[in-house]
Amino acid sequence: MSADPLASLASMEGVPSAFAATRDGIDALLRDRGLRRTEPAFTTESLLRGAIASARLEGSTSTAEEMREGTGDGIVQSALRVSTEVLSLVPTVRATPLQAFARLHAVAATGVLEPEELGRPRDAESAERLRVLASRLTAPTTAPAMLVAAIVHAELISAAPFASHNGIVARAAERLVLVARGVDEKSLLVPEGAHARLQAQYESNLRAYAQASGTSGVHSWLLYAAEAYAVAGELSPLRG
């Protein structure tokens, strides 16, 4: 593996400009809304919106009211538990990403899987995929932080390393990386909501990422992710 394993992805046609434009928009949103004065309630609302969207993407049939009241189905409960845990893992994902991913899964799958399955990869191949992903995260890179978050998301979805809840874990990990790498330090964006709004594109590009034998699927996913993060800003509680 090269010293900068993400450099080749960051140089794909159209990718640098797409992420740069999205980052400019996000920075303007956070700056113009007075980020330093942002109340914790905005972060709480962003996390709640994200959990609701993630649960819906995972197949929850609970109503929005049930989700907000915390009385939804098991999928909702998993997503809500993860939403309350994710920001505490910022230092962990910076230093030991594998531990952060394992913790997200353990929280999501509590009460669903046997205790010995919580946070554990399904098999040796899954463990290796996680190890490689973690090594990418801890290696120095010049790649945009949003690109890193997008790759984490797609890798965790396509590898499906855990016995359950891989979608919820992947979307939470994406939010976690956006926070840890300084894109959205107070977690005010709602990337899960963007994926729900763009669900057809989201699912199509994830399939392409997982199935493509070359780089076309990765390229398409990254361009999609730049668009989705712009929508994540539109869905922020800062917008109302």
Rank of each mutant, 00 (worst) to 15 (best):
S2K: 13
S2G: 03
S2Y: 09
D4L: 09
S8T: 08
S11M: 07
M12S: 05
E13F: 10
G14N: 04
P16Q: 07
A18W: 11
F19I: 05
D27Y: 02
R33G: 12
T38K: 01
A41R: 13
A41Q: 12
T43V: 00
T43M: 09
L47V: 00
L47N: 12
L48V: 04
L48H: 05
G50F: 06
G50L: 07
I52Q: 08
I52M: 14
A53Y: 12
A53C: 11
S54Y: 04
A55D: 08
E58S: 15
G59A: 07
S60E: 10
T61N: 09
T61Q: 15
T61S: 12
T61G: 13
S62W: 11
T63E: 02
M67R: 03
G70E: 06
G70A: 08
G72Q: 08
G72T: 04
I75A: 03
S78I: 01
A79F: 04
S83V: 01
E85M: 14
V86W: 02
S88M: 12
S88Q: 13
V90E: 05
P91I: 07
A95F: 03
L98R: 15
A102E: 10
L104P: 04
H105N: 13
V107A: 11
A108S: 15
A109E: 00
T110Y: 01
G111D: 03
L113H: 00
E117R: 15
R120D: 02
P121R: 03
E125A: 14
A127G: 12
E128S: 11
L130C: 09
R131S: 14
L133G: 02
S135T: 08
S135E: 13
R136D: 09
R136V: 04
T138H: 04
T138P: 00
A139Y: 07
A143W: 05
A143P: 03
A143N: 10
A145H: 07
M146T: 11
M146H: 03
L147V: 15
L147R: 01
V148E: 15
A149G: 10
A149I: 01
A149K: 05
A150M: 06
I151W: 10
I151Y: 10
A154S: 15
E155H: 08
L156M: 07
A159Y: 03
A160R: 15
P161T: 07
S164P: 00
N166D: 12
G167H: 09
I168V: 13
I168P: 10
V169Y: 09
A170K: 04
R175L: 13
L176T: 02
L176S: 06
L178D: 03
A180T: 04
V190Q: 01
V190N: 13
P191F: 09
G193E: 11
L198D: 09
Y202R: 06
S204V: 02
S204C: 04
S204R: 14
L206S: 05
R207W: 09
R207K: 14
A208Y: 08
Y209D: 02
S213E: 10
S213F: 02
S216G: 01
W221H: 14
V231G: 08
V231F: 06
G233I: 05
R239V: 11
R239I: 05
